[in-house]
């Protein structure tokens, strides 16, 4: 219980710092948003009027407190360039990103679970070395390059899958899934490599534990041992790792979504950075950090539930 309380309390200063960083980061960007919005045809009066409207002429501290006050009420502000609430923009973009995330994990697990098991079972054989080499390879491929290569192969040379043309799932499920295949491969390969390595080492750890030896000593069939005891226990750290991978995944999606023209959260960030839409960048970055903080919190709490050693309060670091 002490651990849970401490962990929750720790979240507060993190959130505070996250808000300060988000706010100040974006306000140091060169390039005046009023200038960007007005474009090439601006008159000085219109420019001044817009600055006032956006509150850009207020002192920065004032701007921060106004912003935090609104954020606490769930208001992320109005997009500078699009004139719609940022929260709407983000909500509009989340479904595609969530779908992509799920697809990526499915793809990653399909690859990682069998290869991870195989590498652990045949450890220190050429199978193990080959698969750990391939895993390192998977972790080393730049995802934007992989994206281009799958486009060249699956779209340009063979017209098997479209390279873009996202439609919401409920509008046209088939077209939606077709459009998701390549992006999921492009982001999922790296994640599968990470998961595979994690699964392999955690399998090896569990295999050496007492209860597995006992099970074996009792004469249980090896396949049953693996599937029944080892895998279940070994999957716990894998699942929690998946949770911790959310941050990295969000970063990767920034690029994949741009290449495959998927209207997701990551592309929203890139677009807004390039449009100098301060308010949207702020909101989106804040939300991405919040997502990570919350997921980390859940993972830690989950861990505390599963592994009683942590509850003592030692695990906070």
């Amino acid at each position: 219980m002490l651990f849970v309380v401490k962990r929750l309390l720790l979240t507060i200063p993190i959130l505070f710092l996250v808000s300060i960083m988000t706010f100040s980061l974006i306000h140091m960007i060169p390039g005046d948003p009023a200038r960007v919005i007005l474009g090439q045809e601006a008159t000085p009066e219109a420019y001044q009027a817009l600055r006032t409207e956006l509150g850009l002429d207020q002192p920065i501290v004032q701007q921060y407190f106004n912003w935090v006050g609104k954020v606490l009420r769930g208001d992320l502000g109005m997009s500078i360039t699009d004139h719609v609430p940022v929260s709407d923009l983000i909500l509009q973009r989340l479904p595609a990103t969530i779908e992509l995330t799920i697809g990526t994990f499915i793809f990653a697990l399909i690859i990682a679970i069998p290869t991870g098991i195989l590498a652990a079972v045949r450890r220190n054989t050429w199978i193990d070395y080959t698969s750990s080499f391939l895993a390192l390879g998977g972790m080393s491929i730049p995802n934007f390059w992989l994206a281009m290569m799958v486009i060249i192969y699956f779209t340009v040379e063979h017209t098997w899958f479209p390279s873009s043309g996202y439609v919401p799932f409920f509008e046209d499920p088939k077209a939606n899934l077709m459009a998701m295949v390549l992006p999921c491969i492009a982001t999922g390969l790296r994640e599968s490599a990470v998961l595979m390595r994690m699964l392999r080492s955690s399998l090896l750890e569990v295999v050496n534990m007492d209860f597995v030896r006992t099970a074996k000593a009792k004469g249980l069939n090896e396949v049953k041992t693996i599937l029944g005891h080892v895998l279940r226990n070994a999957l716990i750290p894998v699942v929690t790792t998946s949770g911790l991978m959310v941050a990295g995944l969000l970063g990767g999606l920034v690029i994949t979504e741009s290449i495959f023209s998927i209207p997701g959260f990551g592309r929203l960030i890139v677009e807004s950075v390039f449009k100098r839409d301060y308010v949207t960048v702020q909101g989106a970055i804040l939300v991405s950090a919040l997502l990570v903080v919350v997921v980390n919190l859940l993972v830690d709490l989950l861990y505390a539930v599963i592994d009683p050693r942590i509850k003592s309060g030692k695990g906070a670091d």
């Binding site: 017209t159 098997w160 899958f161 479209p162 043309g165 046209d172 499920p173 088939k174 077209a175 077709m178 459009a179």
Partner: peptide
């Protein structure tokens, strides 16, 4: 989807 008509004109 292999035919050139593409996914947009698929049955669904």
């Amino acid at each position: 989807t292999t035919p050139s008509s593409g996914a947009a004109n698929s049955d669904a």
